[in-house]
Write a protein that binds this DNA or RNA. Structure first.
Length: 500
RNA sequence: GGUCCUGUGGCCGAGUGGCUAGGCAGAGCUCUGCAAAAGCUCGUACAGCGGUUCGAAUCCGCUCGGGACCUCCA
């Protein structure tokens, strides 16, 4: 197996991936908070990790992929008068908090399915792991890195930092962080300005609360990921992932919690995906510039000129490396749409050539073409092994497209390559497109009946052309085109059609 | 203010110290009754200024521009 290199945010360099247990990968990815619809930026992260998950499987690893659902009430701000997100939204919509959770969890799953993301192998919820979180808080208290104030438990960042660097993930010193912290309004029961809550005391009217050794309350912002990753992957596992925005606080605190509790950094490799931007600014819930997947698929967003299919968006994302920002625009999306279409046509051409390829011999009649094809195909794995460089794989695929199309169109004889090369080409083209990149062809509804109707029209047109009645033949083609159906006269005299 | 990232041809975007990614758009040609599709050919880009080097878009420094994080957010 070739070496896979992954950029590790912890060490700021690419490292060869070595699993803790040979043949197995444990991966934890921070999932969504289900109090509103996921926007496209969220989707980008989950699509990126879906590709990573799929690639590990392709490499033959058995992967345990854990992605949580955050459904426990977290404070809005760093003050105890803050409402929790779920009860706030619940009052707004006159629903129980768990109804909100259910609604948006289902919505999230639906979106993931539309993007053809594979489900994680375990999808734990924070509310389902309250006791695990309480246990972990107890441990941290016992180890002396936390303190309780009137039913709320805080993590003692300054004490922790004396023994282990707190800002290790984002390369920051405690003094710098302290300077950057804003002065908080209201009375502050925390000892240190950077201290964060592990457990929060709930007011009586608070809708989501659970009993604990410190009274009724709910878990803090970061403890759920620590508790659930520890439970399902062990206190030390291979990969922890999430969006870059989580590194500075959420992941920094996760590391501190695990170190304080188990004396380990939970993950060997930290992978952070970059942000999706709109007009150069980050897409986010609070900025209000978020695109909802639904708005994209229907084209109902004011900034969109038309609707884009889920697979177009997925492909669009694959054209950029996961650690680069990606800017969202109509032009870029339209380019992606056309590019993907071209890829699918080459893919179909390859399938059609299969019959002909049966007769290929073991020797290629043009070793140069054969060699080039092999080099491009072998480049797929090489590029993926270099920190999952999907953009480079696609570039190689596009290099192969004119070659494949020329086999089909007859510009290049198929026997320029040998049988083994053809088989490899077809196998890898298909594997990458569908299994690793997770792309699928958009279905045309009721194509069976439509096809027989079209075959009739194609036949009539053919007869018209035979007697040089081009007025009739062009009328058929033009009228169909107006209805969104494109006829193509192939080289061999046959006629094919597709939906524009 | 602090910590980082980034600036590539009309647009989107890979990228290794030397062998000019790729996509979209555009131009010409071939094929075609005409189209469409497909194929072929074409643009020699790397913010600016210095430096290191035989050689830099790629390394270093400075300047200018853009962005992220430091506050819930993938």
């Amino acid at each position: 197996m070739a070496e896979l290199k992954i950029y590790n945010s912890l060490t700021k360099q690419k490292e060869v991936f070595t699993p803790i247990t040979p043949g197995y990968v444990g991966m934890y990815v921070c999932g969504p908070t289900v109090y509103s619809d996921v926007h496209l930026g969220n989707c980008r992260t989950f699509i990126s990790f879906d590709i990573i998950y799929r690639y590990f499987k392709y490499l033959g690893y058995k992967v345990r992929y854990v992605r949580n659902i955050t459904d426990a009430g977290h404070l809005e701000g760093d003050r105890d008068e803050g409402d929790d997100k779920f009860s706030k939204k619940a009052r707004l919509e006159q629903l129980e908090p768990m109804e909100i959770v259910q609604k948006y969890t289902l919505g999230f799953h639906k979106v993931m399915e539309l993007f053809n993301n594979l489900p994680p192998t375990i999808e734990p919820t924070a509310t389902g792991h309250i006791s695990e979180q309480i246990e972990m808080v107890k441990h941290i208290l016992q180890n002396g890195y936390a303190y309780e104030v009137d039913g709320t438990v805080y993590f003692d960042v300054e004490k922790y930092d004396k023994e282990k660097p707190y800002g290790i993930l984002t390369n920051r010193k405690l003094e710098e962080l302290l300077e950057g912290t804003r002065t908080l309004s209201g009375q502050d029961e925390k000892k240190g300005r950077l201290d964060f809550a592990l457990w929060v005391k709930a007011k009586p009217e608070h809708l989501m609360q659970w009993p604990s050794p410190w009274g009724m309350g709910f878990p803090g912002w970061h403890i759920e990921c620590s508790a659930m990753s520890g439970k399902y992957l062990g206190t030390k596992f291979d990969i922890h992932g999430g969006g870059m925005d989580l590194a500075a606080t959420h992941h920094t605190n996760e590391i501190a919690q695990s170190e304080a509790c188990y004396n380990v950094n939970p993950a060997n490799y930290w992978i952070h995906t970059n942000m999706l931007t709109v007009n150069g600014a980050r897409m986010s819930k609070t900025a209000g510039n978020g695109f909802l997947p639904g708005e994209l698929f229907t084209g109902s967003h004011p900034l969109l000129e038309k609707a884009y299919a889920p697979m177009t968006v997925r492909f669009f994302m694959l054209q950029t490396h996961y650690r680069s920002t990606l800017d969202f625009s109509n032009e870029a999306l339209q380019a992606a749409e056309k590019g993907l279409k071209r890829l699918w046509e080459a893919y179909q051409n390859l399938e059609q050539l299969q019959q002909q390829a049966q007769e290929l011999s073991d020797t290629a009649s043009d070793t140069e073409t054969d060699r080039r094809c092999r080099a491009f195909i072998e480049g797929f794995d090489t590029s993926m092994n270099d920190d999952f460089n999907t953009a480079k794989v696609l570039a190689n695929m596009f290099e192969l497209v004119p070659i494949i199309n020329s086999f089909k169109g007859g510009q290049i004889p198929l026997n320029y390559i040998n049988r083994a090369t053809f088989d490899l080409l077809q196998k890898q083209f298909s594997t990458y497109l569908t299994d690793i990149f997770g792309l699928k062809e958009e279905k045309v509804a009721d194509s069976g009946r439509l096809d027989s109707v079209l075959q009739l029209l194609i036949q009539i047109r053919k007869e018209a052309r035979a007697r040089k009645d081009f007025a009739t033949s062009d009328k058929i083609r033009n009228e169909l085109q107006r209805e969104g159906i494109l006829l193509k006269d192939e080289k061999d005299g046959s006629v094919s059609w597709n939906i524009i």
